[in-house]
Amino acid sequence: MGRNFEFVRWEKYDVISTADVHFYVTLDAKDPASDSVFSFQTLLCDDSSLNCPVMWSTLACRIKLDDCYKDGMPKWLSDEELASDDKKNYVVQESEWQKNDWLHLFTEIAFYSKTNNELTAPPPLEIEKVVVVTKEDTEEGHEKLKAHNAIFYVSYKYNGESSEWARDHKAVIRKTMDRKPGHIYLEVVAAE
């Protein structure tokens, strides 16, 4: 659901000029529904060309992160921790990751970051196991999939033609959201 945020004030901006001009802008905005003020940071690029003299596009939007998710990326969990299905960890059932396409998207992002974007076709990946860890309190384990702030431990296999990548892979994916529409922060690290 979209919101009509109100501009409050400019905090700061920086300009970096290379082949393109990049504007890093920080401003405060207010949500009239809750009367809360939040910091909004964005990166704009002046992508000029002969056919289009000035074109602005938002390249990034930084959200305010939960303190729990500001530290370095966590390491891969031990086999015992990955197997435990308790209040903190949830072992995602295969039927659930089949229904949630975004888990496949996160896995593809992890794979592409590992391969330095060398592959151009969508990779044939097979998810083998997903464990989600979150501090958000939920009644049912499967609700952890809907957590705004969570860490996903994904083991998967590449089944494509490139023999260089044809093996088992692991990734740690941290998702952080601030409950504002369109705000998501993903961090990915290969865990091998």
Rank of each mutant, 00 (worst) to 15 (best):
V131E: 02
K135S: 01
K75G: 05
V92D: 01
V54I: 15
M55C: 11
E118I: 02
K70P: 04
S34V: 09
F38A: 01
P53V: 07
K70V: 06
K146S: 15
M73D: 10
D85W: 06
F106H: 02
F106Q: 02
D86F: 06
E128H: 07
F152R: 02
F38I: 01
A110K: 02
E140G: 04
A110L: 05
T138E: 02
L125I: 15
V132Q: 05
A147V: 02
T115P: 03
A60G: 08
H148R: 06
V131Y: 06
A110E: 01
D71Q: 14
D71F: 10
Y112K: 10
D85P: 05
K70T: 13
T107M: 12
K87G: 02
L105S: 08
V130W: 13
F106V: 05
V133N: 05
V92L: 03
Y69I: 04
T58S: 11
T58R: 13
E143K: 10
A83Q: 15
C61N: 00
Q41H: 12
V130K: 14
P74M: 11
T134I: 08
S57C: 03
S36H: 10
E126C: 10
L82C: 13
D101E: 11
N116K: 13
D85G: 03
D137N: 10
E143Y: 09
V54K: 15
E81I: 10
S36W: 00
P122N: 12
S113F: 11
T134F: 07
L43G: 11
M55R: 11
L65Y: 08
T107Q: 09
P122C: 05
D79V: 07
K75E: 12
S39W: 00
Q98K: 12
V37C: 00
I109C: 06
L65H: 06
K75W: 04
L82E: 09
L43Q: 14
G141V: 04
P123F: 06
M73E: 11
F152W: 08
C61I: 15
I127K: 10
H142I: 15
M55E: 09
S95R: 09
S34D: 14
F106K: 00
D46H: 14
I109F: 08
S84C: 14
K64C: 07
C61Q: 06
N149M: 00
L59H: 14
K129R: 15
V92G: 00
E128V: 14
I151P: 04
G72P: 08
E80W: 00
M73F: 10
A110P: 03
W76E: 05
G141Y: 04
Q98G: 00
T138A: 04
S57V: 03
D66F: 01
L103A: 05
K88Q: 03
E140A: 00
D66G: 04
D46A: 15
V131N: 03
